[in-house]
Amino acid sequence: MKDIDVIERSRAGARQKISARNVQVRYGHTAAIKNVSVDIAADTVTAFIGPSGCGKSTFLRCLNRMNDTIDTCRVTGEIRIDDEDIHDPKVDPVQLRAKVGMVFQKPNPFAKSIYDNVAYGPKIHGLARTKAELGDIVKVALEKAALWDEVKDRLDSPGTGLSGGQQQRLCIARAIATAPQVLLMDEPCSALDPIATAQIEELIHDLRRNYCVVIVTHSMQQAARISQKTAFFHLGSLVEYGDTDQVFTAPRDSRTESYITGRIG
């Protein structure tokens, strides 16, 4: 067991964060993901692109076991984060999700104040010993999410009262506050206007320094702008995976080429 680990690590390189092998997902009888294997590096922004229904969001949700919450969903195959199998019976998804944060397509702030929205994660995971510490965590998270200046005077007002872009940044701040190592983003800008999108993209760019960011996006331009690695999904399979520049300029697979030139999707 130990030996295999060593071999794996040496093969994948020290900066490998997530490695997925032969992942399959079924909803009832329909297969949503077929045999996907991929290695995702730390301190990198990795983009999943592909036409809608290609399984990229489903695969993303495997990485923090969010698919567990759907009754009919079955995931097989192996996913390792920091070389630990996340489907190991000893792994509590609660701890996994603290390590692997997630931001959703539609901003989904809780029906609480801005402060409580951000403080929620640290509170349940016991990251702060005192109130002051908690306050600091909230402040830092909001600063990282570039929201602090806009909301610092109204931390007690409800999070649902913010604009769409602010709500999404609040959700990012909420995810950051839990101190994750991986941040999964499921089309985080699809419900936002161009200005808010630009703000979020800038934010993702900054986040890359501390987190392994995996982002699902519908927009190829966005993927090209913010990611270093790109994976192209089609009909539940991983078609191509490589450096973003290479995927967009010299795709190896004809399906990738069709997609990025606008012929499918």
């Binding site: 630990e84 190991d88 792994v91 509590d92 996994l96 390590k99 995971h125 990251l127 101190a179 190592q181």
Partner: peptide, 19 residues
């Protein structure tokens, strides 16, 4: 703010209490 360094395979006291 230090990220929890412990392994996912080891459940800590807090998680046990939460469960």
């Amino acid at each position: 703010m230090t990220p929890p360094a412990h392994s996912l395979l080891k459940s800590d006291d807090r998680t046990r209490r939460r469960r």
